[in-house]
Design a protein around this nucleic acid. Sequence first.
DNA 1: TGCAATACGAAATATTAATTCCATCCGTCA
DNA 2: TGACGGATGGAATTAATATTTCGTATTGCA
Lengths: 276, 276
Amino acid sequence: MDDRLPRDFETLRSAILERRQNLPKRIAQIAAYALDNPDDVAFGTAASIATSAGVQPSTLIRFAQQFGFDGFTSLQSVFRERLRERNSSYEERLNALRAEADSGTGHRGIFEGFVAAATTSLNDIARAVDEEHLDRAVKLLAKAETIYILARRRSYPVASYLAYALSKLEIRCQLVESASGLNAEMIGFAKPGDAALAISFSPYAPATIEEARAISERGVPLVAITDSSFSPLAQFATVWFEVAEADFAGFRSLSATIALAMALAVSVAEHRRVSG
Amino acid sequence: MDDRLPRDFETLRSAILERRQNLPKRIAQIAAYALDNPDDVAFGTAASIATSAGVQPSTLIRFAQQFGFDGFTSLQSVFRERLRERNSSYEERLNALRAEADSGTGHRGIFEGFVAAATTSLNDIARAVDEEHLDRAVKLLAKAETIYILARRRSYPVASYLAYALSKLEIRCQLVESASGLNAEMIGFAKPGDAALAISFSPYAPATIEEARAISERGVPLVAITDSSFSPLAQFATVWFEVAEADFAGFRSLSATIALAMALAVSVAEHRRVSG
DNA sequence: TGCAATACGAAATATTAATTCCATCCGTCA
DNA sequence: TGACGGATGGAATTAATATTTCGTATTGCA
């Protein structure tokens, strides 16, 4: 009998997991059910929960007492509290953000707008990217001696973060951005044993397109992150990802693009580490 | 008596709003309470809810019957169902993402990890930023002749996007980043009529700190985006924002920081437009 | 194998909560 | 002003739910 009373769900959860092994059979049965169906525990009656978990109500009470509660009621309150503290649902939250953004109450409205745009983008991309594309892109980039990164204007921040990450991961890369006008020469060094990653969204920066064309004509495999299959980048790319970023006040959220770019960087490092 | 039974919360909500005018006083009182405190209705007992709303339990039942339910219990189930559905989206989605990320199934796991980190950051920041800080920062930046932007390393991508946005919005700014080693001279031009915006997270890039110190000593007001009140930036700043970015695989999500930076940019433009 | 301790199931009981009922209040209309 | 009808408060009633108890089964240990 443990009398340290777990006041919040997480504490209770870990207490359960910790003692899982040496719990009586039926008690363990309830423990498993409770962690799997916390909502049912929050709303049900002792009898209904017991039935669902396949035990007697009295066992449910014993379970509560095992963990320091004085009865089912106080155990249940932990499960209810958990639901209370949860913030509004994803959809509701987004709607609230959008509503605030629309009502334009001061600067916070603008801020909420950007948060909403970023959240939407992330939500969309989580569905859109598939393992197979990732695999191909990662394999291709992992083989490269040097990774050339092409991006301009609004895509440039992503490129600079990517370059930062790759360098940290000790992957050789070259950010094609120089203000010195030597980009063409830089690209001239690229060989088929290298790879390039281009990022561009409509309206596509002409420089990025041109460089992507040039580099792919040199036989360098190209991974592209862009916004549609009509993108001029798509035709030059060996593998390309479609990322639809939501925008607010005319500025795109970069959240989804960054998440994808960083995932590529870390995956490439991982791939190299594993394959030696 | 209306016997179309509202099965879900939204239907009930609109039914209440629609008939709000011609509801008896106490019933209306409950209606208002229920819409304002749906969570309490979901979890409370008829007695506790009645007390909170300032009515008798019997009135609560009459309220339920007015809207076609056969009693308090079935009314309450609508409020509970709402919580259930809510839950199964946002948090669970995040948990699912984290679980996938942890299980490390291939590259998608890594990708999910970055998406989860970004989502978490956005979720946290939406709460953390308040109107008053935004107002002060915006006023301060809007008055500036030139806005100097200080950021290095992992914060640099945000700074570059911010500079892009400010330029698009026709707000004069200067990104202090030059590889030519002229940063000190650049800062030397800053006057009290200008403003600076510094972005730095632990471990703070020494150059950013040093430049922030130098520029604030010249009497230039400073807005800082950083990660804690212990940040060296906080002491130099006129206004500062605390942004806690979640990280994955050692790389911070920049989503929250970007959202805040962009909101500042657009708000400043808006402020200038309105104030002429 | 036998004993003791613990776990368990089922029903009885105590508690708590929902619902109903009735007296009263208040506004409305004749 | 007085009578009617809906609205309300409060207590009584009924339903439900949690908890306790006790007999039995199971497990662990000597």
